[in-house]
Measured scan of single mutants.
Amino acid sequence: MLDDRARMEAAKKEKVEQILAEFQLQEEDLKKVMRRMQKEMDRGLRLETHEEASVKMLPTYVRSTPEGSEVGDFLSLDLGGTNFRVMLVKVGEGEEGQWSVKTKHQMYSIPEDAMTGTAEMLFDYISECISDFLDKHQMKHKKLPLGFTFSFPVRHEDIDKGILLNWTKGFKASGAEGNNVVGLLRDAIKRRGDFEMDVVAMVNDTVATMISCYYEDHQCEVGMIVGTGCNACYMEEMQNVELVEGDEGRMCVNTEWGAFGDSGELDEFLLEYDRLVDESSANPGQQLYEKLIGGKYMGELVRLVLLRLVDENLLFHGEASEQLRTRGAFETRFVSQVESDTGDRKQIYNILSTLGLRPSTTDCDIVRRACESVSTRAAHMCSAGLAGVINRMRESRSEDVMRITVGVDGSVYKLHPSFKERFHASVRRLTPSCEITFIESEEGSGRGAALVSAVACKKACMLGQ
């Protein structure tokens, strides 16, 4: 009897593995994704193909990295998701002549009506938060230079001027797309009239992360975010950046690689679950690469896999709870928690219980395998993109072996128990001629924006502006 049951459990697990095998990517698959990513990057950089390229390769006008001589107080704003952060950054000489960066910050959550109302409502709310922060720190009387981390696709015309191309991540505030974001912020500050600010720089969160990590390690020339969304930036040779005049030196390019796949480059790798996630998203047909990796989508992918296993009578005796059938019910943090389970399955059992399920031991094991399959594919897909960037940098610099540091931020990278190990191992397999160091950014977005502002202020002083 026991043997029969054991055989049935083994057969069930084997069927589960057959279904989950769809998520496995072979090294040849990853090399294919990497080569296609490089081709799209090239198209994004070139003037004649930029418009139709899915990977936009947006110039950021960040050319210099901090040298350690900029000092002063800077205000930093960070808008990239449902939370908005205001930070005071003091850049100065530390002990023994070292450079020191001290920060104080406060988080504000953005109400739904500000995210989806008008641009005026959104930026009025942001300036209200700045006003509140300055009151708390008794700094209303000071006109501070301000660095703005704005983590949406922007076409820069200068370091302090950028046109919002399109909202992502659930934002829909009308009247912002096609307009200068810094102008919208300046107008809102003017409307309030109770404080003055000098907006000197606007950067993407990947750029802010790279600059913040450069402060720790001067070989950091790539910034990457794996959180709600997924994106990367890197220092490109100016001669390859056709959208900006000049051939000397390097400029940081914001790849906006989340949109890779929007022209069909990933079609052969998309599964039924991916198509369902895409169809029910706020932007169907867009940001397809990001939807395979980002935390906004990972939990939902797992939920759809679990429903398939229920329908195949391989999980929960073929019956799903009402909660499990509800879109968004299986949160991405559950994926991390399930994979963090120590082996007694308590954590998995508790999560499934909150979803109205009474799982068996085998159910718990199957749910864990589903989570591992989805998150491992995410790590491997992400590795193909980064390997594409790094191999490109090595080739354009004609280096036999390139040493490089990548600064990384984002909740999936930082909080998932195995993502970074799987990701690092896969990147290294795909970049055999590179020695890569990964560092995690601390308060990256805010500190990085302030350091970019410090560079901009120093330049302005040198130019006598």
Rank of each mutant, 00 (worst) to 15 (best):
R5K: 13
A6Q: 08
E9Q: 12
A11I: 14
E14S: 13
E14L: 10
K15P: 12
L20T: 08
E28I: 13
L30N: 11
K31F: 07
E40H: 00
D42F: 13
R43A: 08
L45W: 03
T49P: 03
E52P: 11
E52G: 08
A53W: 02
A53L: 03
V55H: 00
K56D: 05
V62I: 08
T65L: 15
G68H: 15
D73I: 08
F74L: 08
G81I: 10
E93P: 15
G94H: 12
G97T: 12
Q98A: 12
W99E: 13
V101S: 10
K102V: 06
K102D: 15
Q106M: 10
S109N: 08
E112H: 11
G117H: 08
T118Q: 07
E120S: 11
S127F: 07
E128C: 14
I130P: 01
D135N: 10
Q138S: 12
K142C: 07
K143Y: 08
F150L: 05
P153S: 05
I163V: 04
G170A: 01
A176C: 11
N180Y: 00
V181K: 06
V182L: 03
V182S: 05
L185N: 08
R186G: 07
G193L: 07
N204E: 06
D205L: 03
D205W: 05
S212I: 00
Y215F: 15
E216I: 15
H218A: 15
Q219W: 10
E221N: 04
G223K: 02
I225S: 04
T228M: 00
C230S: 14
A232Y: 03
Y234I: 07
M251L: 02
T255W: 00
A259W: 02
A259F: 07
F260T: 01
D262Q: 07
D267R: 10
E272C: 11
Y273H: 11
L276W: 14
S280V: 11
P284W: 11
Q287N: 06
I293G: 04
V305C: 09
R308Y: 09
R308P: 08
L309F: 05
V310D: 06
L315G: 12
L315E: 05
E319P: 14
S321Q: 11
R325I: 09
G328H: 05
G328D: 06
F334P: 09
Q337T: 13
Q337R: 14
D341Y: 03
G343I: 08
G343C: 06
D344C: 06
L352Q: 03
L352P: 01
L357M: 04
P359M: 10
T362V: 12
T362W: 13
R368C: 06
R368E: 10
E372V: 13
S373T: 11
A384F: 01
G385I: 03
A387S: 05
E395M: 09
E395S: 09
R422M: 11
H424A: 15
R428F: 13
R429Y: 11
T437H: 05
S441E: 15
G446P: 04
G446D: 00
G446R: 01
A450Q: 05
C461M: 14
M462H: 13
G464I: 11
G464L: 11
